[in-house]
Write a protein that binds this DNA or RNA. Structure first.
Lengths: 216, 216
DNA sequence: TGTAATGTTTACCAATCGGTCAAATTATCC
DNA sequence: GGATAATTTGACCGATTGGTAAACATTACA
């Protein structure tokens, strides 16, 4: 009798690697475009170019596919924030954080939308990740920012809301891409909008965080 | 033979008003939480407290319900931007725009999520509204901002990206509420977070848009 | 090369989907 | 109060949903 599920095998074969990769790629396409509830296994199967039971051979359920996808993407997604360096120059750190986040919005919009869909619908599948690893990382970086503010390197401000504002402004260009393009019109919808956005956001945040000269 | 659809009657009865109201209220609950594809008529019927065929007596299709809901909410949603006054003081106008948008995120999060879901998933049902009325309104207000920048009342910047950044930072507190609360932790998840956000955002935007003293 | 494990597919299932129908119930108005 | 229009519902429809069973095909490896 054969062991019916790839998950139960101990060593992963070459085919397993390839097919799981192929499936997660398709799943990213579909989940990011329709959210968990709005996506169907059939859609993913079609995009992946294989039969539905074949998908379910590699991932027992729709939830398992979604979870595997999230696990795979989450670590990478937090990389820019992790790179935030306490020792660095505040202005340069914030500038490069904005730039990195904007690059991710441009180059990995599906990943951004995957999380956006999930969080927007109440984060039923990633609540633990938000309250655990994400919160810990943000707490750590918020402490860095707080120290910068205290020492007068940047203006006194709430570090959490600063981080939220960088997240929201940058991810906006991935998550609300259709709206951004609709408003900018055809003539400004080229990739140049990311450079314009970078210029504006750097100006906004650098100017808005410049330490108050009266305090010192 | 009775006319089978309420939509075909010329005068709306009291019952029609009430039930349509009741349905749209339930539809807002469900659509904002799961997006169009992820929502079902049965869910809406249950929330509305009536049978599915009864819903379909007032709105022939799921799409019709969604459309009616969007039409009803869109105008109100754009009210704060419409109130943006060219004659006013730039700093005060921007400050009050931020405040109004934040109030809406706090008081009408479902409306915010309704649009967020829709836009996030490619805006298949509101593309026309985005490219038409929304774009026109934004174009008009962008011109106002551009004039302020030109006359040195605020720093020279791209007005469209300024508007995007106000939208994204404020709506973030509605659309990503779960994430905001998870990161802030239980102790800072009271309604005070909206005041903290308002304080930070006003500081950021007022500081970031202050005209460069070197130019004048 | 044989064979056991791995991978793939066709056919299918019960549950749920959006939506219809006709019958039953309720409100309106003379 | 009775006729007529408006409203409500249970039963139902075909299509789609997530997922299964089992036969079939392929691969890896001795």
């Amino acid at each position: 009798m054969t062991i019916p599920r790839a998950a139960k095998t101990l060593r992963r074969t070459r085919i397993q690697e390839e097919k799981e990769e192929q499936i997660l790629e398709a799943a990213l396409d579909v989940f990011s475009a329709s959210g968990f509830r709005g996506s169907t296994i059939d859609q993913i199967a079609e995009v992946a170019g294989m039969s539905k039971p074949n998908l379910l051979y590699y991932f027992r359920t729709k939830e398992a596919m979604h979870r595997a996808l999230i696990d795979r993407v989450l670590y990478t997604w937090l990389e820019p924030l992790r790179a935030f360096d306490a020792e660095g120059n505040p202005e340069a750190e914030i500038r490069s954080y904005i730039r990195r986040k904007l690059e991710m919005a441009r180059d990995f919009p599906r990943e951004s939308r995957l999380f956006a869909n999930e969080v927007l619908q109440g984060a039923p599948h990633i609540e633990d990740e938000l309250k655990g690893p994400l919160k810990e990382l943000v707490d750590e970086k918020a402490e860095v920012i707080r120290a910068w503010a205290k020492s007068g390197k940047i203006v006194k401000c709430d570090p959490y809301h600063l981080i939220f504002s960088i997240w929201s402004t940058t991810q906006h260009y991935a998550d609300f891409d259709v709206q951004v393009r609709a408003v900018l019109g055809q003539e400004h919808s080229g990739e140049g909008r990311f450079e314009d956005a970078a210029r504006f956001l750097e100006q906004l945040f650098i100017g808005g965080l410049r330490p108050d000269p009266l305090e010192a």
